[in-house]
C-alpha cells in the first residue's frame, strides 16, 4: 500500500486572495550515487525530476528537481485565487511514472 501525497489547499477562497499551498510527497529520491552493499554497483538514479501544478489547466507552478533534493520532498508556494475549479498536482519520476493528485477549490 503506497503512501499518498499530502496536499494542503483551502476548500474555499475569496476572489483575488493569495493562498499558500503545501505539498509533501513520499519518494525515496534515489540519487544514483549510492552503492549496493552486496554487489558494489551503483543503485540507479530514481528521483522525482519534475513537479507541475495547473489551476484550471493553466500552469501556475513548476519545479525542476535534482538529486540534491531530500527524500519525501516538501514544496510550498502561493497561488492567487481567480476562479472555482481544480488544482492538479503532477510529479514525474525518472522512470516515467507519474503521481497525480487533484484538489477542488471554490472561489467566492
Amino acid at each position: 500500500m503506497a503512501k499518498k501525497p499530502r496536499i494542503k489547499t483551502p476548500a474555499t477562497a475569496k476572489q483575488g486572495e493569495v493562498f499558500q499551498v503545501k505539498t509533501i510527497v513520499s519518494h525515496k529520491m534515489e540519487t544514483g550515487r549510492r552503492k549496493d552493499k552486496k554487489t558494489g554497483t551503483n543503485i540507479p538514479r530514481n528521483i522525482l525530476n519534475r513537479m507541475e501544478v495547473t489551476y484550471n489547466d493553466r500552469s501556475v507552478f513548476a519545479a525542476h528537481m535534482e538529486p540534491g533534493i531530500s527524500a519525501n520532498p516538501y514544496v510550498s508556494f502561493y497561488i492567487k485565487a481567480t476562479e472555482s475549479g481544480e488544482i492538479v498536482f503532477k510529479w514525474t519520476e525518472d522512470s516515467g511514472a507519474v503521481i497525480t493528485e487533484t484538489r477542488k477549490i471554490t472561489v467566492k
Binding site: 500500500m1 503512501k3 499518498k4 499530502r6 494542503k8 503545501k22 509533501i24 513520499s26 527524500a71 519525501n72 516538501y74
Partner: peptide, 16 residues
C-alpha cells in the same frame, strides 16, 4: 504536522 514527513506514514496507518 504538515511539514513533518512522519505523517506520510501516519496517514497510511490511518487507512490501514
Amino acid at each position: 504536522d504538515f511539514q513533518n514527513p512522519a505523517f506520510l506514514w501516519v496517514e497510511q496507518a490511518q487507512s490501514l
